[in-house]
Design a binder for these strands. Structure first.
Lengths: 266, 266
DNA sequence: CGGGTCCTTGACAGATTTCAAGACGTGTGG
DNA sequence: CCACACGTCTTGAAATCTGTCAAGGACCCG
């Protein structure tokens, strides 16, 4: 029941050499500092480092956790490949999906403050992450003022994103939120060089509902309705977007369309 | 209609010596670096500065804006006294109250990223703010690594707060959100040394509704219901909290209580 | 004393959740 | 290869919450 109840039974990922079968582990592969900057999209003029610096990788299989609630915050994690969800768990046990990180995203910014992770990161597919130790980051930002600014910018961007999220939750109906989620997801895929037109959702309807502040039923119904309107095609988790602009601007679905008419039209 | 449409007609606050009657202005008073750190709650071991550093003040009268949408981001602002609201305005003109800063809060963290303000800060009362130029901050953090960490911590805390907000918006009903808003507001007053039991709201019902993702009517009705339950007392903007713990734990108000019964009880 | 803003309250429509049942899909073990 | 079990997804109907529209009252400022 307590937040701390679990901390004793969880191994810190990667610290044990003889890892349990289902435990995540450090891989022998590494990523160099310049590679890391490129992965995160920090466009900086080279790196003025005296010595080369390498960052270890963390491999996760589907369902494994990159970090757990209450675990001490020691590193940030950059996603090199794969898909995850970050779930916050408040004191009363309520869970909420906070984001769906993918390639190029950086996890753990929320832990800076309390020095403990206040959420869990769960792999939705096999993943390869780059471990960026907090202390290492501190050294680097000292040596390279541009990195410091980039980190400020990164954190600030995260704040902007969260504010957009609160605005979306506060002002839009559930259907519009689902529509925008699809568009946003499409854009993220497109930005990585994949198709922004057709893609596969890696999370369940329930995860989407949790993220968007609605129920899995509403997500499902909305997808069906959007398909009937021919804005999208849905085949289980396969999504094809036909009218991204319409979706992005959508505020509500006319009652008569897509949804079953109320028996007898009045 | 455009975001940029207004930028030309707005004077940058404090830059003109002959300020318009209703324009905010720089005051001659200043705050020293150590004072600023104390104001923001940064608990750091003194300041290893060679030369003393003073920060100018910005005075606002009720209704004036500390910064406007689209204005270049040059400074952060620390609240020394008074109350404000920060309102974001998206491309389609939708406004949403993002937060209600008060003494000790720092405004403008969202502007770091785009180098432009993406929101407006409006004084709900006369205010005195401390202007913290971005570039100055950069110098200081170079000289003082502890400050750099404090800034990371500050930004990280902001992210955590926003995440709590999205969780609240996503998981709680409107009545519970209003109840928690009251408790949170009470705690903020208490943290500043004021009474956390009785206080005055500085914002309108509409502002609260915008902040909480509901309507002013629902806010008003909920306050009335909570008063009937004797969890609080309401006298216009004066709030007295009788049962903070009950309020904090409240999830919904039983239909029969507080609200007018549906004509004939079934 | 006006005029305006802010607040309360009621009635109704509409959106969303809840509860329930069944279909679909996938992976496992026989 | 099939059957089964499980998690996931869809769909329906009813209950509930919340927004919308409307009207009146309270309050403040000039």
């Amino acid at each position: 029941m307590s937040v701390l109840a679990m901390s004793a039974m969880d191994k810190f990922p990667g610290t044990s050499s003889r890892a349990a079968p289902a435990a995540p582990g450090l891989s022998k592969r590494t990523t160099s500092y310049p590679e890391l900057l490129a992965l995160l999209g920090f466009q900086m003029t080279a790196s003025p480092l005296s010595e080369p610096m390498e960052f270890q990788h963390l491999r996760l299989r589907r369902g494994q956790k990159a970090f757990r609630l209450g675990q001490p915050f020691e590193s940030m994690l950059a996603v090199r490949s794969g898909f995850l969800k970050v779930v916050s768990i408040d004191t009363s046990g309520e869970e909420k999906v906070q984001c769906f990180p993918m390639k190029g995203d950086l996890l753990g910014a929320d832990g800076f403050h309390s020095r403990k992770h206040v959420s869990e990161a769960i792999a939705l597919s096999d993943c390869e992450l780059v471990v960026v130790p907090f202390l290492r980051l501190r050294e680097l930002s000292r040596a390279c003022p541009e990195l410091e600014m980039a980190i400020y910018g990164f954190l600030s961007r995260e704040i902007c994103r969260e504010r957009k999220m609160t605005t979306m939750l506060a002002k839009l109906g559930a259907e519009a939120r689902v529509a925008r989620f699809l568009v946003a997801t499409a854009r993220r895929y497109a930005a990585l060089g994949y198709s922004g037109q057709a893609f596969e959702l890696r999370m369940t309807r329930q995860d989407i509902g949790s993220y968007l502040g609605t129920t899995l039923e509403t997500v499902s119904r909305t997808l069906t309705a959007l398909e009937k309107l021919e804005y999208i095609s849905v085949d289980n988790r396969l999504i094809v977007i036909h009218q991204p602009d319409t979706l992005a601007a959508l505020r509500r679905i006319p009652p008569s369309l897509g949804r079953p008419p109320p028996a007898a039209a009045k």
